[in-house]
Design a protein around this nucleic acid. Structure first.
Lengths: 199, 199, 199, 199
DNA sequence: TGATAAACGAGACGGTACGTCCCGTCTTGGA
DNA sequence: TCCAAGACGGGACGTACCGTCTCGTTTATCA
């Protein structure tokens, strides 16, 4: 019962790690578009086939290489108020994600995701899901505390916080400074209408 | 003195148009990534050189081909209330932009923009600037009408309306239906805080 | 003392036969050049190593596969005259050897023999030696009978009978019909000079 | 009428010559089997495509490279007797063709010809036809002189002179010395029968 | 009658070369 | 002079096999 299936393949640990390392190294040197399977293989001292055997796509390889680096720093803040919680979390995320070379890598992945649903799903899993869940959790805490209107649409709430980040990152190429996170949180919470009271 | 520059070249109108037409045709057949200069030249019955002579980049060519199609339908609504104005405008934009094959084309352009500032600028000029200015204009009308809080940060306001659109389009691959525009506008105006009154 | 070496290995009969059978099958399907160790292994349901363990070369494997088929039909005719004996023997050989797919196989082997003396020796042993000895034997019988000039060069005699066969087979791609064997024998015996009397 | 077709393509003389030169150079270094398109391209400083554009096959390329070297030395001897004429001509041919690296090259070509009729035809045109016609011409002169029996089969006659050469070259790996040409001619003319008179 | 060592199937591995696609530049007539 | 046509040197693609190398898993003596 225990040996059921687990050894399906004898994957070489050495090759696996060398490939991921080479990928990270080359992507920082030449950017996502300048990355080639051929180059990774050469740099890792590996046959091309060994790459094609385990990753369907350049993009999948890049995701795996990056996902190791990027999933650890996330943690739920707990300052006592939604506003502060969100400010802390978003500031951390914005800072992290907008530091090169991440931004270039992310763009390449986004581009390839358009024509590759599997990749899109994987990207979503690695780069979005966790962060989104954290944000929603914080907002729900705010609702139980009575800070947040319980009738809001949670999807739109999350989109309103992350959308502007990606927008600035990918399209407007405008800096994601700390102030931006702060102001975005405030304005999103308070709304723009004249009738709403800020504090 | 007057002809100084305008006839710098004897550009073949036939070739120019054939190239743009071929670009549109092929991009709809094979997507942005499947597009090649070689293919466009063959399809347009044109030498490759003729393309390279007039466009620096595949992307520049695509932008020109698309900009002809996409700039005309925009107009400022005037319903009397910010909320309605924004709903009408955003619904129109969202519908337009999320219809294939535009979405795929746009992704490709976004991707290439990352490494190509000129292209990014051109993309901004063609696809963003006009829309953004319209939205800002509507909000300012709202301010003068007393509907919108005059102290909001206008950049963040615009980002809050467009960011979620691009986010859903490029990353979450979630539909941009009419309802989305409507709810987004409402929630952005009203804010999420418990203290704000909806109506 | 007697078992010293003979059981050096426990060779799997099943694998051995499956490999030879797969070789014959694939060579008839795809020709000598289209044959790959990988393909044979897959078709025989055998690991590649098992092939490499027992045969040094694709060619050696092919020779073994073929030698089983090709050594049995030879027998010395005895009609009473050199001319008839040779006609009968060569007709049999020519017919056998020129039937596809043998001819393609043989060509491949000839090609590889050039760079592989061991293979050349093995090829010689399997495909040439026996036939050549038979022919020489027949000619020597002719000499003792007084039919053949005892001063001829026997090497050249054998070359004169087999050379044209291989030439037509490998290079001129001209049919080796029965008539050819007959006429070749006659003209070789009689010579071409005007002074020689035929019939 | 004059420009009919002659300029069908603008082939680069430089590339053409560099490729043929590289082919000759590499084939002498590494043999026919060790020759690769990739290697030729690299050595000639040429894109692979440029080779594939003009030659369908490695073999075709090799033939062209060799045909330049091998067609010039042939000339019809005229000593007054068939025997001497044939001896002179065959000695020249045998010497030429058996000098390495030609022999290896030729073998490779023969092998590939088996599966490629066009190549076989080209090989025939370049390496066989001329020589064969010369021999037949010499024999016909012999017939008019009354030296050769006019009833012989000319095809078999030619096969009897060339067959043994190719046989020794490709299969028996036996030297083609001058004596061989001489004795082959004599025995082929005189025949092997006891009734024929030599001298 | 096990134990034990080999041969086995499977297939991953570092490589080489394949033949194709497209890049961006260069060259050659023809209009 | 600009155009279509397309050859050119080059880089990367994804595939096919090479021959070597582990992996467990039979299997067939001989201790």
């Amino acid at each position: 019962m225990k040996t059921q299936k687990q050894q399906a393949c004898r994957r070489s640990k050495r090759a696996h790690e060398a490939i991921l390392a080479a990928t990270l190294e080359l992507i920082e040197q030449r950017g996502y578009l300048g990355l080639s399977i051929e180059g990774i293989a050469a740099c890792a001292g590996v046959g091309k086939q060994t790459i094609y055997r385990w990753w369907p796509t350049k993009a999948a390889l890049v995701i795996e290489a990056y996902s190791q680096k990027s999933t650890d720093y996330l943690q739920s803040p707990d300052t006592g108020s939604v506003k502060n919680d969100l400010e802390v979390l978003l500031t951390a995320i914005f800072t992290r994600i907008s530091a090169p070379p991440s931004s270039h890598v992310i763009t390449g992945l986004v581009a390839e995701s358009q024509n590759n649903p599997e990749l899109a799903a994987q990207f979503h899993r690695v780069f979005l899901k966790g962060r989104r869940e954290l944000v929603i959790e914080l907002i729900e805490k705010g609702i139980t505390r009575g800070e947040v209107n319980p009738e809001i649409d949670m999807e739109i709430a999350a989109d309103s916080l992350f959308g502007p980040m990606w927008y600035r990152l990918l399209i407007r190429h405008t800096p994601l400074d700390q102030n931006f996170a702060k102001q975005l949180v405030r304005q999103t919470l308070a709304g723009m209408s004249a009738s709403s009271e800020e504090k």
